[in-house]
Design a protein around this nucleic acid. Structure first.
Lengths: 226, 226
DNA sequence: GTGAACTGACCGCACGTACGGGCAGAGTAG
DNA sequence: CTACTCTGCCCGTACGTGCGGTCAGTTCAC
């Protein structure tokens, strides 16, 4: 039984548990799960492999924890900006603005998650993260359906559209450079414009929702930045 | 491919090289490059690990060969349908129709390629495949720029738009099921509609380019199906 | 004979994980 | 205060295994 060990008499500080997870996450982002290994993480932090095992048990569980943390944050923040926005095009745009922002706000976790999403589908022990991912996708599908019902989006397959949108965002890790010349706001704006126009949203509403200083982007920035 | 390797008692000139590559490709598609190994491929084909090494040298070279084959085919076919289509919206739609079609036409190679594209950027020995990939992307960017110059697409960042499009297509391997209820034509049509409408193409032209029986889809099917 | 296809035994190493024990701080009894 | 004990954090080592790659040698077609 692996205990989070948050309540303990003999505990010194928060321990290095978090530190280990952060470093592991970065290694997964850089090399992928299979090539990330305990030895490198341990030597980088100046501790032994045994310590990592002590805290996390197995490598699988460590990855699961990374995924769950990322998805929990994404879910919380998505619900937060959904509560603050009402128009379907603003809500959908917020998902895009937030998705792009994660790429610079917490690149390691974001890349680690996106590189290894495929493990959510088959690997055992990933049930929690998978459920969170499904819930997140359902939020987007819901927005698409609502917008369609309200006549803001032209009729179409909401699930397919959500996958089209997620594809663009999830693929970013292969080409986006946080230090590069392309600002995340510019990427989000362009993605929003093409997507919303593609759903039949009128040009003025498109411009507002895509605008880095518009309500959707501002809301996403406030929620994610916190 | 074409030569199903004679099952003759003695060995055959040309050998089982292709057979090995096909099996290896399938394993990469199913488990990823790191978890694919010589032992499994060899035992599945009833030969020894040494034989694989004899034919390919190293595992890296094997993957490079998979990537190069896939990209060469994609490039050839892209140039073929570009030669047959003239309108920008048809050309762009053809990329989408073809991209989706690869998912069912040769799922193993397609998935193997998409899973491991990231290795094109850093790994050495991948220069050829990387150059092919860049050439392919440049074809799409060219179509986007031409369409913009011709006033068919609204102004915007062509490179970003190409990445948005590739993202949707490259992400398909994580969710698309060739045996599933969703036909590839339906996926391609929906993707085309959202994308082209998003670029400002008029509704009638969008419908024609997305139509599974329209000129773009038919052309893509003929070229890819060969 | 020549060379390509193929074999099977073997090597070296990297990596996940198990295990036994050391250490330091907190609780408690005296 | 001191002494003892408990407990979670951490270390070092060792083990088992899986895998990429080597090599000497064999078979077979031309």
């Amino acid at each position: 039984m692996t205990e989070p060990a948050t309540v303990a008499p003999g505990r010194v500080r928060g321990g290095r548990r978090d530190e280990i997870l952060v470093t592991f996450t970065r290694h997964v982002a850089e090399r992928g799960y299979d090539r990330a290994n305990f030895g490198d993480v341990a030597s980088e932090l100046g501790l032994s492999k045994g310590t990592i095992v002590h805290h996390f048990g197995t490598k699988d569980r460590m990855l699961a924890e990374v995924q769950e943390r990322y998805m929990r944050r994404a879910l919380d923040e998505a619900r937060a900006f959904l509560a603050r926005l009402d128009r379907p095009e603003h809500r959908l745009a917020a998902f895009v603005h937030a998705g792009v922002r994660y790429q610079t706000d917490d690149p390691a976790t974001t890349i680690a998650f996106q590189r290894e999403v495929v493990r959510l589908t088959d690997e055992p022990g990933m049930e929690t993260a998978r459920a969170q991912r499904d819930a997140y996708r359902d939020l987007v599908v819901g927005v698409l359906r609502d917008g369609e019902a309200a006549g803001v989006f032209v009729p179409g397959d909401a699930r397919l559209r959500s996958l089209q949108m997620f594809g663009s965002l999830h693929w970013m890790w292969t080409w986006f450079d946080p230090q590069g010349r392309l600002a995340p706001e510019a990427v989000a704006a362009e993605f929003c414009r093409t997507l919303l126009r593609g759903l039949g949203v009128p040009e003025t509403a498109v411009a507002e929702a895509a605008d880095p200083d518009g309500p959707a982007a501002v809301c996403a920035r406030e929620v994610v930045g916190s």
